[in-house]
Simulated assay, not measured.
Amino acid sequence: MSTHERWTRLLEVLGEQGRIEVAEAAELLGVSAATIRRDMEELARQQLLTRTRGGAVLSGVAYDLPLRYKTARQADEKHRIARAVAGLIPPGAVVGLNGGTTTSEVARELATRADLAEQTAGTALTIVTNAINIANELAVRPYVKTVVTGGVARPNSYELTGPLANLVLQNISLDYAVLGVNAVDPRFGAAAHDEGEASANRAMAERADRVIVAADSTKLGKRAFAQVCAINEIAVLVTDTDAPDELVERISSQGVEVLCV
C-alpha cells in the first residue's frame, strides 16, 4: 500500500469513526506503529486531522476531503463510469461539467476520444466548467472549446462558486450537464456537502436539456447537506455494478435511466 493510499484510508476511517488509535490503524493498514505516527504527523501538518495522545481525531475538513485524497477511492469504478458517461455525449454537444474526481475522469475521456480528436476544423465539443483543474486539462485541446465560469475557488474541489459563477451559468444553454455529487437519495435527490458548490451545480442542471449524474455506488442511498437537483430532474444516473438492486429499482422507478457499469 502506497503512502497516498494509506493517508486516504486513514482519512476515510476518521470520517466514519471520528477517531482512531495508532495501534488500531497499524493493524488495519498492515504497517508499523512508527509508520502510522509519521502518517498522522504529516496529515496533522496539512490540517486534515488532529493528533491526540495515542491517535488522532477528525478535523473540521475531514468530511469533505481535498480532491487529491479522493482520487484513489473507487478508482476502477470511476474509470468505468467516466468512460460510459463520455460515450453518451455526441460530437458538437455543449456540455457542463462540475468539479470532482469522477467528472475529472469524464473530461479526460472526452479529451482523448478519437472521433473528437480527429476533427481537423471547427469545434468538436464545447465544455462549460466551473472546475479550474478540468479547464487546465482541456484548454490545450484545440478541438475542445473550453468556457470557464468566474467565481471563488474552493481549495477542496477546485470548483469556482458564488455569484460570479452563477451569473455565467444562468445566461447560457447546455445540451448536457454532467454532475459529480456527494450523495444520491431516492427521495432527496442529488446533493453536495457544500452549499456553494450545490448552488453552482444546480444552476448548471437548470440550464441543461439533459442531466447526467456520475456517482459510484458508495454515494447511493446517502444524503448530503445541500440539494443539487430532485431525483426526477436526473435523466441518467451512471454508477457501478456494486449498486444495490433495491436502490437502483427505487431510483429507476422515478423515471431515471440507471446505467450500472
Rank of each mutant, 00 (worst) to 15 (best):
R38S: 11
L48V: 13
R223I: 12
V13W: 05
V31M: 12
A215H: 01
A56Q: 15
D64P: 14
V144F: 01
L67R: 06
R250L: 13
T161W: 02
E77I: 12
N232W: 08
Q170S: 14
A203T: 09
V181G: 01
V184K: 01
T126L: 03
R45G: 05
A107E: 03
R9I: 04
G221K: 10
N171H: 08
L174D: 08
G87M: 01
G100L: 13
L160M: 10
A139Y: 08
M1E: 07
V94D: 10
V211M: 04
G150K: 13
L48K: 10
R80P: 06
G151M: 00
R210A: 12
A86R: 01
S199H: 02
E27I: 09
V213P: 14
I172L: 15
Q46C: 10
A190M: 10
R6L: 11
P186W: 04
L110G: 06
R202S: 14
S157H: 09
V228T: 08
E246T: 14
Q170V: 11
A84C: 01
E137T: 14
R80F: 13
L259H: 05
L28F: 03
A224Y: 01
S157I: 08
A131I: 00
L259S: 00
D245Y: 11
V184F: 00
G196N: 09
A177T: 03
S157T: 15
S157F: 07
V57W: 06
S253I: 03
A84H: 08
P90K: 05
A26N: 14
D175H: 05
I134G: 00
L65K: 05
A114E: 14
E42A: 06
T161G: 06
L10M: 04
T52N: 00
E5R: 09
L259Q: 02
R210D: 12
R19Q: 03
T149I: 13
S2A: 15
G100C: 07
V258F: 07
L10G: 06
A230S: 07
L88Y: 11
N166F: 02
S59I: 15
I172R: 02
R108D: 06
P91Y: 03
L48A: 05
G87N: 03
A23L: 02
A230N: 10
R207A: 08
I81T: 02
G180T: 07
T8Y: 00
S59L: 10
A121R: 15
L179M: 03
D185L: 12
R207D: 01
N232H: 13
R68V: 07
R113M: 05
I231V: 12
T50C: 09
V140G: 04
D216W: 11
I172M: 06
N232R: 05
R113Y: 00
S199K: 13
R207H: 04
P142K: 10
A183V: 00
G60R: 01
L97Q: 04
Y69G: 07
T35V: 13
E249V: 07
V228Q: 08
R250P: 09
H79M: 14
L110V: 02
